[in-house]
Computed example of a mutant assay.
Amino acid sequence: MKLIECPRDAMQGLHDFIPTHLKAAYINLLLQVGFDTIDFGSFVSPKAIPQLRDTAEVLAQLNLQNTSTKLLAIVANLRGVEEAVKHKEINYLGFPFSISETFQQRNTNSRIAQSLTTVEEMLNLCDQHQKTAVVYLSMGFGNPYGDEWNVEIVEKWADELVSRGVKIVSLADTTGVSTPEKIKTILPVLIEKFKQTEIGIHLHSTPFTRLEKIEAAYLAGCKRFDSALKGFGGCPMAADDLTGNMATEDLIDYLQAKGEDLNLNMEKWNEAMALSAKVFSGN
């Protein structure tokens, strides 16, 4: 069972700038909890995401000496990939590949076909620099733009990515439109078809539907979950202010109740919970 904690996603849409030292202190605590991966920052245009313009500076302040947790950074184009691979501390590069043409244009300023080329170039650079690519199938449960969506389209694009060598695919619900029914329908198809590929899930949700979505994914066989402490963040494009990330504490409670041994340091987790009040206080 792999838990990916996402402070990057929690912070990215906030208007008030979180000081670099505070970001680093928060992530340093999360690094001691025992998550498989921390999605800690992104190498994207500071005009697009001003909150994360200090990702390289945050990275320089992280203490990676006594943690087995790996680091993931988001990239949106080749320039970001080239910047991210320079940092030996980063294990994973994450790329949002939207199966909605409209959202791909809005999110990365490129068409789906161009983004597929970017993925190929990213895979080559990852191989050269001992990194692993994580590709998010963004808008994986539908979209608000009227672009065609169905399970076959999701499967088709997953096949395109896996055939090019992507080893980790995360099905992403960018605007919170997933339902337990959709999750139970789509996830088993991907898990069964792509047995050599790690299939994860990155859900957005209102607080009222988190647990049913977590349960649907777990019962569908998912073993890789993205979440963020207290459910902070989510996509800045989301129409509903309540649509944020899955709350990590809900995920932990659910998985522990199912008997999963998560091997987490709950003392450090509680410290991170306490510090989060300061990190997110001005927003």
Rank of each mutant, 00 (worst) to 15 (best):
I74G: 01
G259E: 08
T55Q: 10
W269G: 02
Y218K: 15
E249D: 01
V75T: 03
L264C: 14
L14S: 05
A48G: 00
T102Q: 12
L29G: 12
Y26W: 14
I153D: 13
D54S: 09
S115Q: 09
K86Y: 06
V81G: 08
A172Q: 08
A239T: 13
K184C: 11
V169Y: 01
L203T: 14
T37Q: 11
S205P: 02
D250V: 08
K195D: 05
T67I: 02
F40Q: 08
P96T: 15
H202S: 02
Y145M: 12
I49S: 00
N63Y: 13
D36L: 00
Y26L: 13
V189W: 01
V162F: 07
T132R: 13
D147R: 15
L161D: 03
G34I: 03
M246F: 09
T37V: 15
T185H: 10
A158R: 03
G142Q: 08
D173A: 13
L211R: 14
L71E: 04
G94L: 09
Q128I: 13
N91D: 08
K156L: 15
R210K: 15
P50A: 00
L116Q: 05
E82S: 00
M273S: 04
L62T: 12
G234V: 08
G234Q: 06
T102K: 10
L71D: 07
